[in-house]
């Protein structure tokens, strides 16, 4: 354990420091919506759902949405002929720590119009749940699973919301959250014990077990006798 003055290994036990430089989540520069046609259109059409707009890194436009209307707005962005954001590049999340809301980040790209747009939805830590967009883009399937796995965000109506990078029976929480220590939550002894006591139920879904049966058991009896096989070969 760390001494009174703290040590370089504190963070390993405690999780990374919460971003402490700003009391709120850091803001980018105030954007000029006129520079990005989609931002103007969004503000005109979904005035109540568009919370704010900012410009990051010089020319990257970010629109903050009300998390309750993410699917409706994203569907419009995908389908409207003036927008056509048909490629969902990325879905991820950002945790600033310190109890601040967690951001879900959608990176969109429009192949026909060659434009990029970043959409963010802020979720309070006690309500980490948002509509899935798999119905709009199949690309969101694994990306949302990853956010669920590493941040613990529930995506409503997701067809297959399971862990993806961590093991299915992982019980220590969601590793990319700021309150998660680098070495995990359990003691090393407990982690070893769990690693040694796995069984095949952890590696298959119930549907798969129904098809395959328990692994390592004798194969089911052949429905035809070996004599018959022999005669067929003749």
């Amino acid at each position: 354990m760390a001494g009174e003055n703290g040590s370089a290994f504190d963070a390993v036990e405690q999780g990374p420091e919460a971003s402490g430089r700003n009391t709120e989540t850091p803001h980018g520069g105030v954007g000029n919506p006129a520079e990005h046609p989609s931002v103007t259109a969004l503000q005109g059409r979904f005035d109540s759902a568009v919370l704010r707009h900012e410009v990051q890194a010089g020319d990257q436009h970010v629109v903050f949405l009300d998390p309750g209307s993410n699917r409706a707005v994203l569907a419009w962005l995908r389908d409207d002929p003036e927008q056509r954001y048909d490629l969902l590049v990325d879905v991820t999340a950002v945790d600033y720590g310190g109890g601040r809301p967690l951001q879900i980040v959608y990176q969109l790209w429009s192949v026909p119009h060659k434009r990029a747009l970043r959409i963010k939805c802020e979720l309070p830590l006690d309500g980490l749940s948002i509509d899935s967009v798999v119905q709009l883009w199949n690309a969101a399937n694994w990306l949302e699973r990853e956010v669920y796995d590493l941040f613990g965000v529930e995506f409503r109506d997701h067809p297959d919301l399971r862990r993806i990078l961590m093991p299915q029976n992982y019980a220590e929480g969601h590793p990319l959250r700021k309150d998660f220590p680098l070495r995990g939550r359990f003691s090393r002894a407990e982690q070893t014990r769990r690693a040694l006591s796995q069984d095949y139920h952890d590696d298959y879904t119930p549907e798969e077990l129904e098809v395959g049966g328990a692994p390592g058991l004798a194969p089911p009896e052949l429905p035809i006798s070996t004599d018959e096989v022999g005669t067929r070969l003749d």
């Binding site: 990374p16 420091e17 971003s19 402490g20 430089r21 700003n22 850091p26 590049v89 990325d90 991820t92 950002v94 600033y96 720590g97 980040v105 990176q107």
Partner: peptide, 13 residues
Amino acid sequence: GMYVVSDGGEKPV
């Protein structure tokens, strides 16, 4: 792609 988030510090958020 790389998505980097900073709070102005020496380490990424």
